[in-house]
Design a protein around this nucleic acid. Structure first.
Lengths: 208, 208
DNA sequence: GCATTATACGAGTTATCGCTCGGTTATGGT
DNA sequence: ACCATAACCGAGCGATAACTCGTATAATGC
């Protein structure tokens, strides 16, 4: 019988693993891919090298991933999931001001903890529009933030479409930090960027 | 005698062309590379295909470019130069408010004029830190904006390090628009993003 | 017009790529 | 204990990649 396959043949896994050892194999592949991404970059990280470094047969790799793109899409997805979890572990913000400070801080801490990896994920690994929308940031965080702004709309300066505002603010924060990761990573260790970004967002969202 | 070579062997051109026909060859290569980027993407746009489509021998391609990366770095550099020229052709802004509105508008118009190309340049083509700093945006525009803010510092709300503020604002604007190009290009055609972005920057820079 | 240099060329070399396939080995339910 | 199936394997195939080099042609300076 043919192996079970998921819908999108390019970016999702092929088989759905059921035993513990196959999950370990997948973890080994993803860990190997991450290490190779850091050491030799996306272009040169071939599926053969990934399998070798993982201590896994090349055949096994193709049991679980339809190709190279899918492997790195999964690396990205897991990192994004980790960020989402970190964000949600924070104490519930009691105001928009707290929300902005808390979530800017947690994202900055997140990228600072492994600058090279996040720079590579932003820069080196191609992003495919389809897979992108499946990231927890878009699927879970942005809707969450939208809901939060709705329940705190009394604090808001703007009275237009709150959904669009939430979307906009989420993207500005993420895009700005990502931009510094890429082009000025040294400035991320100083607190200045954090202050500027918080100031920017607060003045946009709140009355002075 | 050996061909003249520039400093960075990876991202710069090899020979410096002197005759008109060689400039035409280079243009044909860059145009071909751009078309292939749009049609088949960075990964599959090999140097052989680029030369073929350009109607140029593969040998000629390697006379002028040390490799694939350098070709696309030059495509990016020329696009960035074009943006800088468009920006500088605008009437001189007479206030920070005018600056923000004018330059946000010109950049939005620029990316809207060829969304697919700019999405590919942001997303698909790897960016190398070294070459990045050589883009007109960093080398010319940011210093220009810094100078502008200095001469209009009376309007500014902040009195801290103006250079860092100019840097920050330039990056926020560019990063945010690039982010929409990638993840929500449809929203770029509506004027809403422009309004939100201008509002964001003005409230950050100016007194209410 | 002649020498020098710039430009153009592309078959061929070497390497690696993504990926298949036929098969072996391990696991777990009954 | 047995067997269905999940997991694992890696030699090898066909394709294509980046890039070289010996050579041919065109432009330029004198």
């Amino acid at each position: 019988m043919a192996a079970q396959r998921k819908l999108n043949p390019l970016y999702s896994m092929r088989k759905t693993p059921s035993q513990a050892r196959s999950k370990a194999t997948i973890d080994a592949i993803l860990s190997s891919a991450t290490r190779l991404l850091l050491s030799i970059g996306y272009d040169k990280a071939s599926t053969n090298k990934i399998a070798d470094l993982a201590g896994v047969g090349i055949g096994s790799l193709y049991e679980y991933f339809p190709g190279k793109e899918a492997i790195f899409a999964e690396v990205r997805r897991r990192e994004d999931q980790r960020l989402f979890n970190l964000t949600m572990e924070r104490p519930d913000p009691r105001s928009i001001k707290e929300l902005v400070r808390s979530h800017v801080a947690v994202y900055l801490e997140f990228v600072r903890s492994n600058l090279v990896l996040h720079a590579a994920l932003i820069n080196d690994v191609p992003q495919f529009a389809v897979g992108q929308q499946e990231l927890p940031f878009y699927r879970e965080y942005v809707p969450w933030a939208t809901e939060f702004l709705h329940t705190h709309k009394a604090e808001l300066r703007l009275d237009g479409n709150i959904t669009q505002v939430a979307n906009f603010v989420s993207h500005v924060a993420r895009a700005t930090i990502d931009n510094y990761v890429l082009h000025a990573p040294d400035q991320l260790t100083a607190p200045l960027i954090e202050d500027l970004l918080i100031d920017l967002l607060e003045r946009f969202l709140l009355e002075p």
